[in-house]
C-alpha cells in the first residue's frame, strides 16, 4: 500500500504500525511529533496505530531553544 510521509510516497506492507514506518525510514523516535491524516498521534500510541492505505503522515522534529 502507498503512504505519503513528509511529502514523499512510500510502499509499505498492509497493517503496518506507525512505529514500524518510523523505524523502516530510519527516523529517530526522539522528539518527533507524528501527524496522521491531520491528527496528532501521541508517542505512546505509535506501536498501536495501524496505518491505512493512502494515509498522509507528517513527522516533525522538535529541538530545544527559545
Amino acid at each position: 500500500m502507498q503512504i505519503k510521509v513528509n511529502g514523499k510516497i512510500y510502499n509499505f506492507d498492509d497493517n503496518i504500525t506507525l512505529e514500524n514506518i518510523i523505524n523502516q525510514l530510519n527516523i529517530s523516535h526522539q522528539n518527533i511529533i507524528a501527524e496522521v491524516n491531520g491528527q496528532v498521534v501521541l508517542k505512546e500510541k505509535f506501536n498501536k496505530t495501524v496505518i491505512e492505505d493512502n494515509s498522509v503522515i507528517e513527522l516533525i522534529k522538535f529541538v530545544g531553544g527559545g
Binding site: N31, I33, V40, L42, K43, F62, V63, G64, G65, G66
Partner: peptide
C-alpha cells in the same frame, strides 16, 4: 518554550 519536552507537551 525553551525545553523540547515542554514544546512536545503543548503540541501533543
Amino acid at each position: 518554550f525553551d525545553s523540547v519536552s515542554s514544546k512536545m507537551l503543548l503540541i501533543e
